[in-house]
Design a protein around this nucleic acid. Structure first.
Lengths: 140, 140
DNA sequence: GTCGGTGCAAATCCTTTGCACCCTC
DNA sequence: GAGGGTGCAAAGGATTTGCACCGAC
């Protein structure tokens, strides 16, 4: 439950934190920008400031509850951490995001890191293309 | 040669474009931010404006001569396109960037894209960790 | 000579921060 | 009651843009 998650992260239980976290747990969209979240919360009549949304997202990310992604570099997108790591396929036309996990790729990455004497911390694999939607599935 | 590259990209030959492109061809660093490039050019006494550096980098990227990377999301880094695709290993401590290519990972990506009916355009794989430098090679 | 290229400063976008006030513990 | 949390507006960093001038073709 939201409150326990906050507690175990060592964060004070404040209305705003509960509101943001509940929203993330209940929304359909898994990948949202700070702006998306702030806008939606306001539309829902929630009483949260923009700065607070940014602050809470940073705290949840530091606490490991959220992951931050820069698909295109312009702005950050957040998703609830799942217990299983995954990578992303992004449709360049409609923006749809598919999550996938491939054990072979994961293992190769580990081997490559070892080969270069690097101790791996994390990685981001973003694949961009056009999805099966007829509007999207075309030659670039 | 720089001028021919510009011509074949359909870009007018201007001093500023030649300066930026020459700089990129001659520098040791393969991954540079717009700020890095602007600063170095000015230090070299070159007569280029900041806006022009940004514009030229965008044009060279659109022309396929440069690749833009957002390793951490804060700002863009540019590298001259090589004829061979590669991915990146980044040291979180010293910032060193290792380029690598792994045919196995490339192929798996293709297979995964097909599995999700996506027509792949490009991808970015960024691996982050700590390099073999004693200062860097530690547990996080 | 034309039309795109440039420099400067202002504008924009996303995000962070300073500060006075508020609320959790 | 203390110390962190919040909202607002202002500041910040990276990048783009408007506009008058300049230069390549």
């Amino acid at each position: 439950m939201t409150i326990n998650k906050l507690k175990s992260a060592g964060l004070k239980i404040t209305n705003q934190r509960v509101i943001v976290l509940n929203y993330l747990f209940n929304t359909q969209e898994r990948h949202l920008s700070a702006e998306d979240i702030f806008r939606d919360l306001r539309l829902n009549g929630e009483d949260v400031g923009q700065a607070t949304v940014y602050r809470v997202l940073n705290q949840l990310e530091e606490a490991g509850m959220l992951e931050r992604h820069y698909f295109d570099g312009s702005k950050a997108y957040y998703e609830l951490s799942s217990n299983s790591h995954h990578d992303h396929l992004v449709c360049l036309h409609c923006g749809k995001i598919i999550e996938f996990f491939d054990p072979f790729i994961e293992q190769r990455q580990q081997e490559i890191a070892e080969q270069y004497d690097m101790k791996l911390s994390h990685h981001n694999l973003y694949m961009f293309g056009y999805c099966l939607n007829p509007d999207c599935h075309r030659d670039i």
